[in-house]
Simulated scan of single mutants.
Amino acid sequence: MIHVPTPADVARRQSPEIGPVTEGHAEALRTFAFFPYRGPKNAPGSVEPAELGRRAWEETLSALASLAEPEEWTDSNPTVRPLPILDSFLRYTHRRLVMEDKIAVTADGEYAASNTGLLTPHAEEIFGLYQRNQHENAQHWFFVGWVAESNRDLLRNFDEPPQMAEYVTSASELVYDWRRELKLAYDHILGDNIDRFPPEMVKQPLRARQALDSAINLTLRRVRRNHKLVIPQWYPKLGEAGAQFLMPLDLTGDGTADLALVVSAVGDRAYRGHTVLTLDMAYTNARLVARPDSDWLAPSAAPIPAIDEAFDVDEARPVEV
Rank of each mutant, 00 (worst) to 15 (best):
P82C: 05
Q204E: 13
A208S: 14
R180T: 04
V98A: 06
A215F: 13
R207G: 12
L129H: 06
P161H: 10
I85P: 07
S76P: 07
I194S: 10
D159M: 07
F143R: 04
A215L: 15
N157G: 06
G128D: 06
E181T: 14
T79H: 05
V175H: 06
L154A: 04
V80H: 14
V175S: 12
V175C: 08
V175T: 14
V147F: 07
D187C: 10
L90Q: 03
R179Y: 09
A107H: 03
E136C: 04
N217H: 12
R132M: 02
N115C: 06
R207L: 05
R152L: 09
E200W: 13
S172P: 13
Q204S: 12
I85R: 15
A171E: 07
S214V: 13
R196V: 10
L155Y: 12
K102P: 12
L184K: 04
E136N: 07
N133R: 00
P78N: 12
Q134N: 10
R152E: 13
F142R: 08
V105R: 03
H140F: 14
W178T: 11
Y176W: 09
R179H: 15
S214R: 13
S172V: 12
I103K: 12
H135V: 15
S76D: 06
E200L: 10
S150W: 11
R196T: 08
R132G: 05
A104L: 07
W178I: 14
I194E: 04
T120P: 10
P84A: 08
E136V: 12
T93P: 00
T116P: 00
L206W: 13
S214A: 11
T169C: 12
N157Q: 14
R207H: 05
N137A: 08
M99P: 06
K183I: 01
Q131C: 14
E173Q: 11
R81W: 15
H94A: 01
A138C: 08
R152T: 10
A211L: 03
A138E: 13
D108H: 11
S88K: 07
R152P: 09
T116C: 03
H188Y: 06
L118W: 11
L174S: 11
Y176G: 03
D192V: 15
G117A: 06
E149D: 04
V105K: 06
E124I: 01
F89G: 00
D75V: 00
L212N: 01
P82Q: 00
P205W: 02
Q131H: 07
S88P: 12
L206N: 10
A113G: 01
P205S: 04
R152I: 14
E110H: 10
E160W: 02
P162W: 02
P198W: 01
P78Q: 05
D187G: 09
Q210K: 04
N151R: 06
P84M: 05
Y176F: 15
R196S: 09
E166H: 08
N157D: 09
R91A: 10
A107M: 04
E110S: 15
L212V: 02
I103E: 09
T120K: 11
F158L: 00
D195V: 14
D187T: 13
L212I: 00
D213K: 03
G191R: 02
E149N: 01
A138S: 08
H94S: 00
F158Y: 05
E166N: 08
V202T: 15
E181L: 14
E100S: 10
F89C: 03
